[in-house]
Design a binder for these strands. Sequence first.
DNA 1: TCTCTTGATGAACAGCGTTCAGGAGACGAT
DNA 2: ATCGTCTCCTGAACGCTGTTCATCAAGAGA
Lengths: 271, 271
Amino acid sequence: MFTSAYTEAMSDELPTLPWDRPRGRTRPPRIPLTRDRIVEAAYVVLDREGYDRLSMRMVAAELGVAVSALYAHVSSKDELLELMYSRFFADMDLPDPDPERWREQLRDYARAALAKLRSHRDMARISMGSVPFKPEMLPHMDAILGVFRAAGLPDRVAGAAGDVLSTFVDGFALEESMWQDRYRATDELTWQGMREALERYFAELPPERFPHLTALSHSMLGRSNDERFDLGVEIIIRGLASFAAEAAATGETGGDRTGTGETGATERPAG
Amino acid sequence: MFTSAYTEAMSDELPTLPWDRPRGRTRPPRIPLTRDRIVEAAYVVLDREGYDRLSMRMVAAELGVAVSALYAHVSSKDELLELMYSRFFADMDLPDPDPERWREQLRDYARAALAKLRSHRDMARISMGSVPFKPEMLPHMDAILGVFRAAGLPDRVAGAAGDVLSTFVDGFALEESMWQDRYRATDELTWQGMREALERYFAELPPERFPHLTALSHSMLGRSNDERFDLGVEIIIRGLASFAAEAAATGETGGDRTGTGETGATERPAG
DNA sequence: TCTCTTGATGAACAGCGTTCAGGAGACGAT
DNA sequence: ATCGTCTCCTGAACGCTGTTCATCAAGAGA
């Protein structure tokens, strides 16, 4: 079994050398369990073990505490994951919408978000698995919407633009994360090596059946992930620029004009 | 306990009425377990119970068979999920790249993919959780790349375009799927009702802290999901059109020019 | 010093994915 | 018709998961 932090603290009652004996009346504190400490430990486990092995028991072990102790502070594993996700947004700084610089602002924000998602192993899995939003991300949504408006996007487009950008960033990070997990499993293959293998695989497909795939294998996989990401963001930004230009030309602004020209998809039934 | 299909078949040895007694020498067949039957049962369970409750034991129960029997045909649950994902692509039809109609082709494909993802509960979860690609989707990748090239996109952009489009479709479906799960849990609230509640929540936020969110609450949530989706796809298409126009102007084609053109993206796209 | 409150404990439950020795039916050979 | 073999499926088990609950120890107040 694991030595609990609790009994560990108690073991300070054993004789200690005079010079590091607690001075004054400060006593060895019991280090009470808190939500924050639990979330912190969960991040440690996540980074070391990955999402699949992140369990309540592992977090408890990390804290030197019984599993059931966690449930006094956190109602479920889902809540713990949501707490992790919430803390995630804490220290990202937000753009101050500027009509002159909206492109850079979106680019910077997207890059910062990707970097943040990359900063903890499998974080994209948690991000994708969380409820579409938490109160902590309201300031983010507001700031990004502000940038969209500063860009001159009509309101109806601004609403959809967030979807496109956020699904791209999250999806991109998730895909990276899954490749990472995969090559971690089939180890002794480097990240770069795996991509080369993949490129070779594409290149060696029968060209008569996959003419484009074989032709573009190098264009798709020969460049760094960062380039691919930036290019993706650029595609989105240009799409938005097109709408902004159109709105500037026609004078459309916050109106509620409906439709994108045609409707084809059918609404998902409520049941 | 469950009655197994196995013993069930055997129970046909009980007396039967003459007219539906097996004619000739055809005997009641044992209906052997196959990968296909397992995948099929898995889909039934998925649709009825949802992704979270989809377990090997449930699939086995659905087939009236012991859990361990599955492992003779399928090496793991992961493999089963991948089989489900593979079958998923089987009956989608692919565009035949046409330079004149690339916009519609992308729109149609995106809508078809979304419809497919919607056709099975939580399918987006499986799609997002699967390896970035399986051999079954090679024809899809090739066809879409073909459309990108028909659009006149430079190769380096075509590679990234697929990421943007597929992450948007998958991410959109996933988000829908998660809202659905959520309101299924906190039941007696309709899909539409939940969206209205959300819109009200946004609208009632303090406007001085969230000026854009409050202003755009209706633009974001007042319209149907299909409109939001179409708009998102349109943003991407216009972004691609911008690159295509640029390539047409500068004569860029399959070259391997690097960089994303940090300063570019100012010109008005074609469409 | 005694009680009360707070909070961690460890055992338990139901369910999960996966493995494995065993058994039952089908089939070819005798 | 009986035997042996071979193919599947069975049932029990292992170790893991999230979650609950009666119990008990430590710290604070009287």
